[in-house]
Design a protein around this nucleic acid. Structure first.
Lengths: 247, 247
DNA sequence: CCGATATATTACCCGCAGGTAAGAAAAAGT
DNA sequence: ACTTTTTCTTACCTGCGGGTAATATATCGG
């Protein structure tokens, strides 16, 4: 079918954008535009109150055109959710790749997760109802959630093992922290007085100070300005999907 | 008041409409039975997926009979929500009537609120979407939420004033605590391994330990076994409604 | 310029669930 | 026993919104 066209047979740099590539790219961009419009509307009004006509209208197209990119409304919902899940996954991967004590890792995770909750796709992780998905997709989503939850617990357990976190029940501690963070997705408003980074900083401190073992090495060191890059996960085109939008 | 009815055999949550026989009972009890059935279904399946036929069926009646007690589906939702709000309100009233430092009050609130989140009407407070309500009822609900949030902040501020809580931002601290508690309503399952009181105890400790000012007088004293009474707020009949279910 | 392939549109279907009308069946009043 | 009132049922209406079929329009390969 579409063998990857690494380089065109005979066309010199005169026309660097091959029709192939550009076409597929245009398609992906449109697909993503649909998701952006949809996630915004879903968050604003709630999934059930948003009609596909509205989604289409916001994109200056008509409803059936959406079916060129998605099989149905619930698949759009799932793909929005997956976008958020991928963001979290990439955060976790990055932290795992780095080094640090359990507490340090936990703080990184809390910070990044808090900031994510202030984005559309991030908030969709906790504000969408998985029961609106097909059973198959819901299972994928549940699995992803479980992985995230496990990561919190792992970091806490690791922290207890390496002495950076004092003794506690990892399960309930993780619930408490994750719950607090997830709730951000419910109350955060872009037009509110709080910036995402301010929230992330404050929550990082507030949620981990109770866990830190006594000792000078576990005090909170504020990171320098280092502006976290916006839009962390948009580097590659052919990302592995979290699960594939199977029906 | 409600003496255990002679319910001989029959089904799960006792339904006043036991097939065909004795269908006479106080109107209010029937009304409340509708709410209990509804809140359960709404939490189980989600408001939009529950049909009035299902609600009615569970009560051994038919859909239009519901309209003798409620004006429509959204009013049922609102009344369920209000039940939860009343429970919280009575908790707050009780704490305000008592004495104690800001921290002590906060701990009482956290404990009671955590336990409430493990009940149906309590969970409905955070799991129902206010956008499903009429604008008028939604406004009532928003006001109630705001009052609750204000109470958290007040206790924290009071604690800072009386020295039982160390310096922090009351607004964000309240968000962190309330978020953590609210999330209980999303993950708690009756059939899980955790009892409501265990959760409440643990969360009370976990969420306030980071706030307590240094000093011996602010350590956590575990309450003795004293089994909190189930069903705390059901004493009076003519309760003032939170706002009256106006349309 | 001509098919082929995507992409979008107009017009339609239809199932579902909230809501209502009219009247039966109890309960209560007399 | 009769009306009257409350409660509940059967049968129906209706609008909304997801999804589809048939068709037009652009784009590309040649």
């Amino acid at each position: 079918m579409d063998s990857a066209p690494p380089t065109p047979p005979s066309s010199p740099p005169s026309s660097p954008w091959l029709p192939f590539e550009s076409r597929r790219r245009a398609r992906d961009e449109k697909r993503e535009a649909v998701l952006r419009a949809a996630v915004q509307l879903f968050l604003e009004q709630g999934y059930h109150r948003v009609t596909l006509n509205e989604v289409a209208e916001r994109l200056n197209i008509t409803k059936p055109a959406l079916y060129n990119y998605f099989r149905g409304k619930d698949e759009i919902l799932f793909e929005c959710w997956s976008m958020g899940a991928e963001l979290v996954d990439s955060v976790i991967t990055e932290i795992n790749a780095g080094s640090g004590s359990g507490l340090a890792r936990l703080r990184k995770l809390v910070h990044a997760y808090a900031a994510l909750m202030a984005t559309d796709f991030g908030a969709s992780l906790v504000r969408f109802d998985l029961r609106d998905l097909t059973e198959r997709n819901a299972a994928v989503a549940r699995a992803a959630k479980k992985r995230i939850d496990a990561t919190f617990r792992d970091y806490i357990a690791a922290g207890m093992a390496d002495g950076s976190i004092k003794a506690c029940d990892p399960k309930l501690a993780a619930f408490a922290i994750a719950g607090s963070l997830n709730w951000i997705g419910h109350w955060y408003r872009r037009d509110g007085g709080l910036s995402p980074t301010a929230i992330a900083d404050e929550f990082t401190a507030r949620l981990t100070e109770g866990l830190a073992a006594a000792g000078p090495q576990h005090t909170i060191k504020k990171k320098p300005g280092a502006p976290q890059r916006r839009n962390p996960g948009r580097k590659t085109t052919g990302k592995k999907r979290t699960g594939g939008g199977t029906r």
